[in-house]
């Protein structure tokens, strides 16, 4: 029998490589359902938008609503809080992006880009560090203080101090009436 140990690839080498490749692709395809089953199910994805009435929120107050099982802070800011948020220089912001899903990705984090109407701050109430719920009206900047690792946000929900990397996210939302919001 002729030796197969030659420098030239043989038909047997080709068959080995082809078989191995098909087997690897097959294992990968077979594994995918076992991986993908852990992703959010259709039932979870279906709960994509909610309509809320914010008429009962008074100036200086905040209400919390649930959207996609996440808390959404709706804060009716006072004149003083609005003025404070508008006066912040961009140089004082660790995260200079608006993080507003209603605006282009590179929009700067001015107070104007964080809100639709100056009175209403609408943000996802989850600390961008490790997911705790920040406490309202606490910390050095009058906005939020996360109790877990001490991140501090201002009255526009922008990160000012601590380990959180990003401003509190602004969810996609629109006013569908004077005091009616559609989130999502």
């Amino acid at each position: 029998m002729a030796t197969t140990n030659t420098a030239e690839p043989t038909r047997r080498d080709f068959i080995h490589i082809a078989t191995g490749t098909v087997a690897a692709v097959g294992v990968g395809l077979a594994a995918w359902p076992f991986i993908d089953q852990m992703n959010p199910s259709s039932a979870v994805l279906a709960l994509s938008s909610v309509e809320i009435d914010i008429g009962s929120v008074q100036e200086g107050q905040q209400s919390v609503f649930m959207w996609r099982s996440k808390p959404v802070f709706v804060r009716r800011r006072t004149k003083k809080e609005i003025a404070e948020a508008e006066a912040v220089s961009m140089n004082d912001l660790p995260d200079k992006l608006a993080r507003n899903l209603n605006l282009p990705e590179d929009a700067p984090a001015t107070d104007k880009n964080r809100i639709e109407k100056p009175e209403w701050l609408v943000v996802i109430g989850i600390c961008t560090h490790l997911g705790c719920i920040p406490l309202n009206n606490q910390g050095e900047f009058g906005g939020y203080l996360c109790p877990c690792h001490g991140s501090q946000y201002d009255t526009a929900g922008r990160i000012r101090k601590g380990p959180a990397p990003e401003n509190l996210a602004v969810p996609p939302y629109a006013f569908i009436g004077p005091t009616k919001l559609k989130i999502g």
Binding site: M38, N39, P40, S41, V44, R68, S69, K70, E105
Partner: peptide
């Protein structure tokens, strides 16, 4: 796209089976 979640958020939502820790 620009508003799609990143690698970390994608993995985290895969671990959760949702948008937050919950039943799944």
């Amino acid at each position: 796209g620009a508003h799609d979640p990143g690698l970390g958020t994608t993995i985290t939502q895969w671990l959760w089976g949702g948008f937050a820790v919950g039943d799944p």
